[in-house]
Design a protein around this nucleic acid. Structure first.
Lengths: 252, 252
DNA sequence: CGCGGTTTTGACCGGCTTCAAAGGGAGTGG
DNA sequence: CCACTCCCTTTGAAGCCGGTCAAAACCGCG
């Protein structure tokens, strides 16, 4: 079975410029992308019978840190977070993956982090050995890994050098199509609004941003008070003026 | 020209259990490594005339963030740091690379960070197009990228969730062969001592650990006062008891 | 010895965490 | 339909860790 990639602007649920985390494809994340790449070999491989499609519900754990790394996964739909734990229970969410992203690699034979579904997900389970044969497939895996590395670099900057407000602003921008992680292509239309649907609890956001739940909450309240966002329903946050949020990320 | 990988314990400069950053190969970083992998194709490719060997001095900049990503590099000897800057000058060192590590990949056509030599380095300049042909070569690149991702995950935990002391302890352990980044294999001998030679200034260490220069200095002074380390010469730090440092990393 | 750089130390401050309590929303049962 | 519970989120008050600013110490070098 092959699940067609959804556009971030399909009709129906995008009337007011809304976008959910669900629809944002981050595989080749963002705006600066080079020449288009031929991934036809990958497309036919992933839809071949060798790629089993599996389903996970919200908060299902696909694997734990230190489990034997048996599978390689590709997200067909939904979002997965990867996290690590310290011995005393401190948690750091190290990455958030979307449609098209690969995960479950390991150098050591053991997964280096845990993987948890942030929402109902469809996931393809792939066989490493199939991939190792073909340079086209390996090329695709390569590009996915490189993309991950660039995102992890951004995240290191966020965790190491940004203030709480800048972190939250960056986090919100992450879910604005074409303006997240990588770069800002400027306002897209006259109405520079965007509704972001967060499929993460405050605790998960905090663990991703290296903050506490209280700080995340306080920053969001503050942004609301200043009229920069409006919180429509705890997990639905409207960016009243995307550019203003963008300017708070610390990048510009 | 082909530079043989050096053992961390070659005779001569290792008499007192000293190890410099220089001799620590982190390519397949650490202890948990799975089955040995055949990299003969890579070894012969890298020593072919297509791989030009280049030399950089300490603090030479190989490329800047947003430069066109023309080259792919492999470190033959030395260490390179990758960093990103925010608009107001805040810097975050996102990775530190050693012998065997690859860098200079890009999804976007532009480098996503700057690269600076931490010491005199020999670097092989490779051609992407040569690599894209062969699945053996791509497999090697893949493993290097996966290894980077695991290190970046560790670093996210450090930046997001560790105290200043834990960060510095983790940093020091990074340069103890077989006990850094990935895992701790326990004390190696009766004398559990190790001299670490830092080829980074306090500023660079601070920018790597997401701290200020003053905090790094204060933590080191504190560790010295408590007899956990002794600072022989600003860039030569002796870990009096490696296990004690290890226990301060927050991992155990 | 004097100079420029880096590193260390000190004093103070502020942002984020911690601890504690109140608020809100969804689901359940009376 | 409302009361009650549970869990998550928000708000408040206080404390602390690390940042900031400033000065002293150190170190290599001419």
């Amino acid at each position: 079975m092959f699940v067609e990639k959804k556009s971030a602007f399909e009709p129906g649920n995008q009337a007011d410029g809304m976008v959910s985390m669900h629809h944002h494809n981050s595989r080749y994340s963002g705006t600066k992308m080079k020449a288009p790449v031929d991934d036809s070999a990958w497309l036919s491989f992933r839809s071949s019978p060798r790629a089993r499609l599996d389903r996970f519900e919200s908060h299902d754990i696909l694997f734990h840190e230190d489990d034997p790394a048996t599978n390689l996964y590709e997200i067909a739909s939904g979002q997965i977070m990867l996290y690590r734990l310290l011995a005393d229970g401190r948690r750091q969410v190290v990455d958030i993956l979307s449609e098209g992203d690969l995960f479950g690699h390991s150098m050591t034979g053991l997964y280096d982090c845990s993987a948890e579904a942030l929402m109902p997900c469809e996931v393809r389970i792939l066989d490493r050995r199939d991939i190792e044969q073909s340079s086209e497939l390996l090329g695709h895996v390569n590009r996915c890994l490189m993309s991950r590395i660039e995102v992890l670099h951004s995240h290191a900057v966020l965790l190491g050098r940004k203030s709480a407000t800048e972190r939250v602003a960056s986090f919100l921008m992450r879910f604005v199509p074409g303006r997240g992680v990588v770069g800002c292509s400027g306002p897209k239309a006259d109405v520079d609004q965007q509704v972001v649907v967060l499929k993460m609890t405050r605790q998960e956001i905090a663990d991703y941003l290296g903050l506490t739940i209280e700080t995340v909450s306080r920053v969001l309240s503050d942004l609301k008070r200043r009229g920069i966002i409006s919180i429509e329903k705890n997990d639905r946050i409207k960016l009243v003026e995307v550019c203003r949020v963008c300017k708070m990320t610390g990048i510009h």
